[in-house]
Write a protein that binds this DNA or RNA. Sequence first.
RNA 1: GGCGCUAUGGUGCAACGGUUAGCACGCGGCCCUUUCAAGGCCGAAAUACGGGUUCGAUUCCCGUUAGCGCUACCA
Length: 501
Amino acid sequence: MAYGKCNDGNWVRGNAMSGPRVRFAPSPTGYLHVGGARTALFNWLFSHREKGTFILRVEDTDVERNRPQLVDGILESLKWLGLDWDEGPYFQSQRLPLYRAAAEKLLANGSAYLCYCPPEKYAGGDAADPEDGESQTISRRITRCGCRDGQPTDPNQKPAVRFRVKLGETTAFDDAVFGHREISNDEIEDFVLLRSPREGAEGALPTYQLGAVVDDIEMRITHVIRGADHLSNTPKQELLYRALGAELPIFAHVPLILGPDRTRLSKRHGATSVAMYKDDGFLPEAFRNFLCLLGWSAGDDSEFMRTPELLERFSLAGVSRTNAVFDRAKLEWFNTQYLQRLPIEEVTPEVKGELQRAGIWKNEWDSGPGGGWFARTVDLLRPRTRLLPDFSHWGRGFFSDDFDYDPAARQKFWKDEKLPTLMAKLAHALDAIPEWNHDACEHALRGLAESEGVKAGLLINAARVAIVGQAVAPPLFESFLAIGKTRVVERLRQALPAMQS
RNA sequence: GGCGCUAUGGUGCAACGGUUAGCACGCGGCCCUUUCAAGGCCGAAAUACGGGUUCGAUUCCCGUUAGCGCUACCA
């Protein structure tokens, strides 16, 4: 082996002069999905851990399926996740001459040949392969047509360029995650390098195999960290590296992320795009922490790990080989943990963003005396929050006078018919408090309960619904302080009519 | 169909020849209590199956099964 593991378990070349170079190469056929995000995260962690370079490359060679406008969304999602790159984004669509030159070289040295078979002959293999398992058993076979031996099937066709796989040999490589891999070349088809030029197009487009390898060579990628769906493709790429006279990078394939039904995660599983999680109100760091633990572990029981710790502990050696199911419940748990455990100054900006989205943010909370109030209020609310929108939904009454009474809360805590009278008295008693503090409020309320012969809980629960419209809220007297005397008294009085109905 | 990869509670991970198989999420119960969370404690829940190797297999080997991947002029 030309390389080995260094102390921390990460694979590096023995004589690496500078740090490793890795890349994340999404293709703009959709949004950034969680599987891609996890791959990007591993690359990012690895490159930072090893003081290397993280390159972003957009693989947009499939004109048919490409949606250029999706690129921005992908970049945005990466940024939201905090996965910044050092180079790029490079676009394969702007590097076409590179791939064509490589194909020429392979043609010239006999590693490739022109294939004149009509594309339809091979295209649509999946369509012809019935998912239902009924009838026709189309066994797909390894493509080896007459063109390989210089007998063009149809010289009138515009040819594609295929790689000439040397039969009777074995191709092997060492994967940093899956270990030693070996396959007989006889199992590898003569894969296409350059697609046949289409009508009206200016030239031939490369396939994934060619594009990825040429770019990885040209960009001097040292570690290819990507999804395990490429494990079976790797021998082909190794053949390409050799035919191009390039040194092999270290491959590290990471297991796939599955849906709850253990099939590959896809749209029908619901939220699969990173953007949706952002919209749902997850914190990027919580999402990162969760994602990192899908297919990787620090080797012990550690779970809650902030990014610096992840950076410190990440290693390819800790990557598992089994596919993992994406569990939203656990993601939410992580978010809850972050919402509660982060230093308050790290969560207030996020809450500010949420309140802005909800249209109830006031600039006076930003700094000065008001800033202290905002941070204290967020701190008061956060033990009961799970996602960011909780602040603007059930926490709305703390920031806005415009809130509704939750029907279930009214139903539950406004049942007692004495309540309107009691609440009026409570409002009066609170209004009379000279110094608005926790104990004074509690004193006033409990005193009233005692003199009226009712349980304090009755007043507490009813008052809570009256001041914030919710059955769920922080402890009442702390809520009183956060909302302020004037508003509390006002809201108590305003609730009276609703309480009677 | 062919080739390959994988296999620990429902889920994510630990145990890398010897443990009463550990942790976390979720679930159930209890405590706390001013609602609801959080937190604390307790509990149910797993080595896919069958053969080997070994004094001893979750762990190593083989087979079966299942899932997934590749088998495209997609990436």
